[in-house]
């Protein structure tokens, strides 16, 4: 397992180092345009795609076939990617937390709850992308996995639009916003765990 993580670390250093530069650039921009949350969210979103990109590189170099000849279980090969995902997301959340803390400190005084709210939202946003994409890729391969991902996103958008049309009266929920965020964050982590498990099941059945 250590060998798999080390290999991914080398690959990340080579292929993903610009992500870090870009992320820091975006976080600095977020100080300048305080009304726009895009610069806060975007670095975490593309960090969620790091394991997906590493998997694409693995497939291109035929590492997936070669790793099938090495003393690793299929579960370990899948878990390597999810652990890398957790690592990059944690680093990015940490950086974002510091950046937003500084921003709020400069602006109107530090408010830990506001930073927490942003971090929880980011946790959800960053885990969902890779959670949805990775099982498709482990089952179908990178190209077909990506296609399936886009089809699914299209379906979700279509259904959401349809549902919005059906419910003309807005849904009212008697729930405190902070509690809702915590619930959503727990759901995000749960989805990540479910996605991890599904990927293992799919990859065990895949022929290399």
């Amino acid at each position: 397992m250590k060998g798999l993580l080390l290999k991914d670390w080398y690959m990340m250093r080579k292929y993903c180092r610009y992500y870090l530069v870009l992320a820091i650039g975006f976080l600095i921009l977020s100080f300048m345009d305080k009304s726009n949350m895009f610069f806060v969210f975007y670095p975490c979103l593309f960090c969620g795609m790091v394991p997906v990109n590493l998997l694409a590189y693995d497939e291109r170099s035929r590492w997936l076939q070669y790793s099938g000849t090495l003393p690793y279980t299929r579960a370990q090969i899948v878990s390597g990617k999810y652990l890398i995902g957790l690592f990059t997301q944690t680093v990015m959340l940490f950086l974002t937390g510091i950046a937003q803390g500084i921003r709020m400190g400069m602006d109107s005084g530090y408010q830990s709850t506001d930073v927490l709210v942003i971090l929880l939202l980011l946790l959800i946003a960053s885990t969902v992308t890779s959670s949805v994409t990775l099982p498709f890729m482990f089952k179908l391969g990178v190209e077909r996995g990506r296609a399936a991902y886009y089809v699914m996103i299209g379906l979700i958008c279509g259904i959401s639009t349809l549902m919005t049309g059906l419910f003309r009266e807005p849904l009212r929920m008697e729930i405190r916003p902070n509690l809702l965020l915590v619930l959503l964050a727990v759901a995000g982590v749960g989805i990540y765990a479910l996605s991890w498990h599904l990927s293992i099941v799919f990859y065990r059945k895949r022929e290399l």
Partner: peptide, 11 residues
């Protein structure tokens, strides 16, 4: 040893 070595390209 497979016909395509399978080692990541950047290593």
């Amino acid at each position: 040893v497979l016909d395509e070595a399978g080692i990541p390209e950047c290593l």
